[in-house]
Write a protein that binds this DNA or RNA. Sequence first.
RNA 1: GUGGGCGUAGCUCAGUUGGUUAGAGCUCCGGAUUGUGAUUCCGGAGGUCGUGGGUUCGAGUCCCAUCGUCCACCCCA
Length: 422
Amino acid sequence: MKIQSVRGMNDVLPVDAAAWQHVYAVAAQVFAAYGYGELRLPVVERTELFKRAVGEVTDVVEKEMYSFEDRGGENLSLRPELTAGVVRAGIEHGLLFNQQQRVWCTGPVFRYERPQAGRYRQFHQLDVEAFGIPTPDVDVEIIAIAAQLWRRLGMSGFTLELNSLGTPASRAVHRAALVEYLSLHEAALDDDSKRRLGTNPLRVLDSKVPATQAIVANAPQLLDHLDAVSLAHFAAVRQGLDDLGIPYVINPRLVRGLDYYTHTVFEWTTTQLGAQSAVCAGGRYDGLVQQLGGPQTTGIGFGLGIERLIALMALQNVPVADNRPHIYFCRFGAAAERDAMKLAEQLRIDMPQLRLVLNAGGGGLKSQLKRADASGARYALILGDEETAARCVQVKSLRGEGEPNQCPWSELAAQLSARLAL
RNA sequence: GUGGGCGUAGCUCAGUUGGUUAGAGCUCCGGAUUGUGAUUCCGGAGGUCGUGGGUUCGAGUCCCAUCGUCCACCCCA
């Protein structure tokens, strides 16, 4: 049997890693710009944590978790999302007691699903969470962080979909009305919707089946059941987004898949990724911390799918920080090869930003220059017996920037600094 | 879990109604005045045709199974 990666768990190869590094670099910068601190968490948690946080009857918990018993008999799971672990850590270290916390987190998450475009069994999320701030201004802040990220990455074409689930109480009232209405029409519903009626009736509102859509058109609307507090909160969020000039569309059928959401929910969607439209999604979860055994404190945050983001960046030809070498150093002849190694090392000391590849493994000048070209380097340095006798190096542009010149060793760092603006 | 498409060289693919030693482009390596790339020309390396059975004188091609992969549903980032 040929050994290969586990289904749905992909390798990121060096050619693609530049985009990942770029995303992480820009994201860290953005989060810092809003005063969010990084939290680094284990990939494995007790299964119970996710059952309680995400919800016992959700698909994620029922059929998508990688769960196992360790050698001590503990039931553990690979995390299917980041928020539960963030809350657990916050409670465990006393970060959520009567205080505000702004944190972010990243890493792999795991869901046992059939892979398809933009969907993997191991994928990566960026998570941003704010705790202990019940007011709608932080809802706006969280959404603005994503908008700022798109801006700094140079991305466009997102739709911000927005909805409010209200308080648990108003949500329960609506749910009861909805179930009552749908039950009257149950015979006409498609099979999936009949099933959802018992599990997650809000989902029926989102059905793609035409016959079901016709029934849903007259169903009780969630927004009609919001209480005064919920309506005021929602209005303030919309006002804040308007003030910042962040466009959005109200989607009354937007329901997040996980149980813990209250009030604001949102998704940044795109039409450019096939069947997977959500790139970034989140909302407020004011009951979650207490539900997990912590103090009564509020929370709001989002999860962003890095694979989807990077796929979209590729589609939009978003420029990525260049990590190709500046210099490829060709060398041949016994004495010259030793001198070149010393020069290369000194250049890296003199120019900390320099990316220099020193030819290794021998080869003629022709083949070394081919490697130089293929490496993407802007300049080749050439050191052979002639140069080493004259204590100089040939500096040759590989990108049509003038004729080669012979540069004395003593002036090499200065010349390269000037040429590369390093 | 359900449905459909596809598995031939490192990559992208061709391969006729079944018929000799399975091809192309790209990549890689070497050469075209000794030490000058990316263009051009010449040459070379690289494949148990996913795997296992079956039909046949003969299977990359037909049949069955299996694995993998892609896309969609469910659900989600």
